[in-house]
């Protein structure tokens, strides 16, 4: 399994655990689908929770007001790209 696939699964598992998504499995999360509202259906508190998760696990600090933060949170693949970019620095 490639490293990016591993990271995708790792993020899915982390989101499920952090947000206590009891009925969701990693397979249920479409990596291209929106995480918020339609798609997975998460809300603004979940966004804060994911922000904290990224900070704790990857040392990524995001500005909650910045437009690019919105883009990083658009889908699982967008989050993955953010973590990968941060690792490359």
């Amino acid at each position: 399994m490639s490293e990016t696939l591993d990271l995708s699964l790792e993020l899915k598992r982390m989101i499920i655990k952090t947000l206590e998504l009891e009925d969701i499995t990693p397979e249920d999360i479409d990596p291209e689908a929106p995480l918020f509202e339609e798609g997975l259906g998460l809300d603004s508190i979940d966004a804060l929770e994911i922000g904290l998760m990224l900070q704790k696990h990857y040392g990524i600090k995001l500005d909650s007001e910045a437009e690019e933060t919105r883009q990083h949170f658009a889908s699982l693949n967008a989050l993955k790209a953010l973590v990968e970019a941060h690792r490359d620095h």
Binding site: L19, E20, I45, D46, L48, E49, L52, Q55, K56
Partner: peptide, 9 residues
């Protein structure tokens, strides 16, 4: 530790 926003809410 930082507080969980969900639990705080």
């Amino acid at each position: 530790n930082p507080l969980s926003p969900g639990r705080f809410s």
